[in-house]
Nucleic acid binder design. Structure first.
Length: 404
DNA sequence: TGGAAGTCAATAAT
DNA sequence: ATTATTGACTTCCA
């Protein structure tokens, strides 16, 4: 039924035209390269989400899981918020389809979701539970579900992917000497967000250089985080100067880190909910058992354990198992020492304890007594974090308690 | 003003 | 070539 694009095949010469009209894509900030020549056909192709409240029929073939339409669940009945969705399941099905049909995340993201490849990767690998998503965050899932509802969608997308590859291949071979087929008008818009374009018109804009924090810096930041997930401006300043980073970088790092840890916790929640069994075993303290000890770890071990690489964490964690941000922050913290001390700092005003000092060299020091230390630190850090959130929630935040 | 959520986009890893 | 990671940025909200 609801095909995303109806734009049937096109004539188009260079295969530029597509079956799909990319979902609306509104470049918020950076007028990227070619923004002038409208890189992405901002076709106002109506968001599937918005127009048809995914009626029951959606369930049809794709088999997208769609629970009973339990009218707007809380979020103020916005257009795209009608019913619950099993985000994990949807993500799973999408991944399955993409793999099965050999469709890349970039194409899928561009034409179906209106998102970048990186965003698609995240959404598919770590979908947040529906209840934690904002209206905006739910949109991709609505689109994905709708996408799954009609087999034609995947077929059309496959066609596009095929053309794209063919085009790129052609270009590659015949364009070795920077031809200009692009000159006039960039090739297929699907190239829009890909790097090749940058190479084609390097002049148009300055490629942003990405700051890459070194292992020591990350290490120090994580330690700092462990002591204080919400550092004061003063602390941030100190961190920045000590690490020789811009304060904005430090601020961003904390934002990102907190955010990513939170996401892990969300994910863990649903997993935990899924398997009540584990609950039994773990017992003990709900806070640590639930929050970040087991599941998150496992998850991560699978997802990024390998890539955690460059930090010593990898090694230390190896002894334990995985390496989620959450876990990392706990595991990592201050190498051997902090264990006990970190405990203090967690509940007391640790300004003093904030030691960015020598990032304990990772080269050696594998996990010494990993399990014990890491677990304890993990719990402590986690508790610290949770307490903070509770404090906040309770509206009784006491700066003297949490800020230095 | 600051934090959270959501993304982008550079780039590292596969 | 594709996917995963992650620093930076935008938007929204309290």
């Amino acid at each position: 039924m609801q095909t995303f694009y109806s734009k049937a095949l096109q004539e188009s010469t260079q295969g530029a035209a597509l079956l799909f009209t990319p979902v609306h894509y509104i470049p918020t900030s950076t007028p990227g390269p070619g923004s002038g020549s409208s890189p992405v056909p901002l076709s106002a192709s109506p968001l599937p989400t918005q127009q048809s409240p995914a009626g029951p029929e959606v369930n049809g073939s794709g088999g997208a899981p769609s629970p009973s339409p339990s009218q707007s669940e809380g979020t103020g009945g916005s257009v795209s918020d009608w019913e619950d969705m099993d985000t994990t399941e949807i993500a799973r099905q999408i991944k399955e389809q993409l793999i099965k049909h050999n469709i890349g995340q970039r194409v899928f993201g561009h034409y179906v979701l209106g998102l970048s490849q990186g965003s698609v990767s995240e959404i598919l690998a770590r979908p947040k539970p529906w209840s934690k998503l904002t209206i905006r965050g739910k949109e991709p899932f609505h689109k994905m579900r709708q996408f799954l509802s009609d087999e034609q969608n995947i077929l059309a997308l496959r066609t596009i992917q095929g053309r794209q590859r063919a085009y790129l291949k052609r270009r590659h071979s015949s364009l070795s000497d920077s031809r200009s087929v692009d000159g006039g008008m960039a090739g297929p818009d699907f190239l829009q967000s890909s790097s090749p374009q940058h190479q084609r018109r390097p002049q148009l804009y300055q490629k942003k250089v990405r700051v890459v924090l070194g292992p020591e810096e990350k290490e120090a930041l994580k330690r700092a985080y462990q002591e204080k997930p919400y550092p004061s401006p003063k602390t941030i300043e100190e961190l920045a100067s000590q690490l020789n980073l811009k304060t904005s970088t430090v601020i961003n790092w904390f934002h990102n880190y907190r955010s990513r840890i939170r996401r892990e916790l969300f994910i863990e929640e649903i997993q935990a909910a899924g398997s009540a069994t584990a609950a039994k075993a773990g017992e003990g303290d709900s806070w640590d058992g639930t929050e970040s000890d087991g599941t998150v770890e496992g998850r991560h071990g699978r997802h990024r354990g390998a890539s955690e690489d460059q930090d010593m964490e990898a090694r230390v964690e190896a002894g334990v198992s995985g390496g989620s941000p959450a876990q990392r922050n706990c595991t990592t913290s201050g190498s051997a020492g902090p264990v006990s001390s970190s405990h203090n700092s967690l509940f007391g005003p640790p300004e003093a304890g904030l030691s960015l000092s020598a990032p304990s060299r990772h080269t050696s020091t594998p996990a010494r007594n990993p399990r014990d230390n890491t677990l304890r630190k993990k719990k402590a850090a986690n508790l610290n974090n949770i307490i903070h959130r509770l404090e906040k929630a309770a509206g009784k935040e006491d700066p003297s308690e949490w800020e230095f």
